[in-house]
Amino acid sequence: MKNQYHIEGMTCEGCRSGVENILKSIPEVTSAEVHLERKEATITSKKLLDIEVFEKALPDKYTITEKGNNITDFSESGIEISAGKSELRQLFPLFLIFAYITITSVLLNYNPWSTDDFMLDFMGLFYVVFSFFKILDLKGFPQSFRMYDPLAKVLPVYGWVYPFIEVGLGFMFLMRFNIHIALIVTVFVLGITTIGVTKVLLDKKSIQCACLGTALKLPMTKATFIENAIMLVMAIWMLAKNYS
Rank of each mutant, 00 (worst) to 15 (best):
K153C: 06
L216E: 13
V167H: 05
V129Q: 07
V129A: 07
T186V: 04
Y158K: 10
V197P: 04
V189Y: 13
C209E: 03
S131V: 01
P142Y: 00
I195K: 12
I135W: 03
V157M: 14
K139C: 03
C209H: 03
F132A: 13
Q143D: 10
F188T: 09
L125R: 14
I195N: 03
I184S: 05
G168S: 07
R176M: 04
I165L: 12
M147Q: 14
L202C: 08
P142D: 07
K134T: 02
K204G: 02
S144D: 10
V161Q: 01
V185K: 11
M175T: 15
F225Y: 13
F141Y: 15
R146Y: 05
K199W: 12
C211Y: 00
K205W: 02
R176F: 04
T224G: 03
R176T: 04
K205E: 14
S144L: 15
M147E: 14
G140Q: 10
F171T: 09
G170L: 06
E166A: 04
L169P: 13
I135R: 03
V128D: 04
Q143T: 09
I179P: 00
F126R: 01
F133L: 03
Y127G: 01
M175Y: 12
R176G: 02
M147W: 10
G196Q: 01
I179S: 00
S144P: 03
L201E: 08
V167C: 12
K222H: 11
D203G: 02
